[in-house]
Computed example of a mutant assay.
Amino acid sequence: MDDETGPAELLLATCTRDLGDPDLWITPDGYPDSLALCLIDSIYSTGAHYTSVLNVVRNYRDYRRTQAANADSDGAPELLTTIGELGGPDGWATKVGNRRPTSTAPGAPLKAAAIASAAETLVELGIETTSELRAAAANGQIDAVKQAWRRVPGQRSGLTWEYALMLAQIPGVKADRMVIRYTARAIGLPESQLSAKRANELVRRVAEVKGWNIIHTDHAIWRFESGRQVSREADPI
């Protein structure tokens, strides 16, 4: 028995008890054709109520609609164009996003600035669309992209990176505070002693053992821990 077996078995039992039938889980739609929305949603999602994130996504869609364009097919270049049109990250934050900073540190840049930086980074690496991001993952080139992402202001932890992959429908685990809290409780550790990486590894292992979709497993845990409905009603027989 290796060091992971005990905690993984504890988490597996807890997930089996709490999450119900995986065929009935409410699954995340993500943005399979919009790298722009993956960037916006993932970077705005940390340290914020998700309602505020949805507001920014809606604002971006509305802005693009006024241009007779479709936000749900925008890549990183289109996102950068909108930022330029509105006078840079500051103007974009006022018109489309919000003025939340990347951290509570004095002088921390706006999340809109981090979005612009992340988009520029991906374009420089030749990744402009979700399909190109998925290709990088399939070709074993994703680690270099991850390292570049983590150099963007406020993104060092890698949590927004994992979430962006999930939104682009690339298998992974977004070990945010809800997933960390749930996993820590399941394995009997204080939340402060469980790293995002460790939680990520444990959830991935449970999904592999059960044959569950890793993205859907992460989302089901997140919904349960945040008090949301995990499963839809079963169809009547």
Rank of each mutant, 00 (worst) to 15 (best):
G30T: 01
P77Q: 01
A105N: 09
V96M: 03
L54Q: 13
R61N: 00
T121H: 14
E124F: 15
Y60K: 00
K111L: 01
E124T: 09
A114L: 08
N139M: 12
A71M: 00
T46S: 11
R99A: 13
N139S: 12
R64A: 06
D90G: 14
L80D: 03
A135K: 14
I115T: 08
A105H: 15
Y50V: 09
R64H: 12
Y60D: 00
T121L: 10
L86H: 05
T130Q: 10
D29F: 12
G126H: 02
A136P: 01
S42P: 04
D21P: 02
L39D: 00
R150E: 15
K111T: 03
D143R: 11
S73Y: 12
G126E: 01
Y63S: 11
D29L: 15
R61C: 01
I142W: 07
T81V: 14
Q141V: 10
E85P: 13
L37A: 01
E78L: 08
R150G: 08
D74H: 07
D23K: 14
V56I: 06
L79R: 02
A108T: 07
Y63V: 06
S45T: 04
R64W: 08
A112P: 00
C38L: 03
A112G: 08
A113R: 07
D62I: 04
I40D: 00
D33Q: 15
L125R: 14
G91W: 03
A116V: 11
R134G: 11
G87D: 01
E78R: 09
Y50P: 07
G30D: 05
S117H: 12
G140H: 06
A135P: 10
A114R: 01
S103C: 05
G91C: 04
W25D: 07
W149L: 04
A48E: 14
D29E: 13
P32N: 06
R151V: 15
P77L: 05
P89R: 00
Y44V: 00
P77T: 01
A69Q: 11
D33A: 12
L122V: 07
A69R: 08
D62C: 07
Q147H: 13
R99K: 12
T104W: 14
G87R: 05
I115E: 08
A135C: 15
R61H: 05
E78W: 07
Y31T: 06
R150T: 09
T51Q: 14
P28S: 09
N59M: 00
T130Y: 05
G20Q: 05
T94N: 15
Q67N: 12
R151N: 14
I26Q: 15
L37Q: 04
G126S: 03
P22R: 04
T94H: 14
R150V: 08
P28Q: 06
W149G: 07
L39C: 03
R65S: 09
Q67G: 12
I40Y: 02
R150A: 13
R64L: 11
K146E: 13
I142Q: 10
A69E: 13
L79S: 01
A116W: 06
G88F: 01
Y31N: 13
L122Y: 15
V53R: 00
E85H: 10
R150M: 13
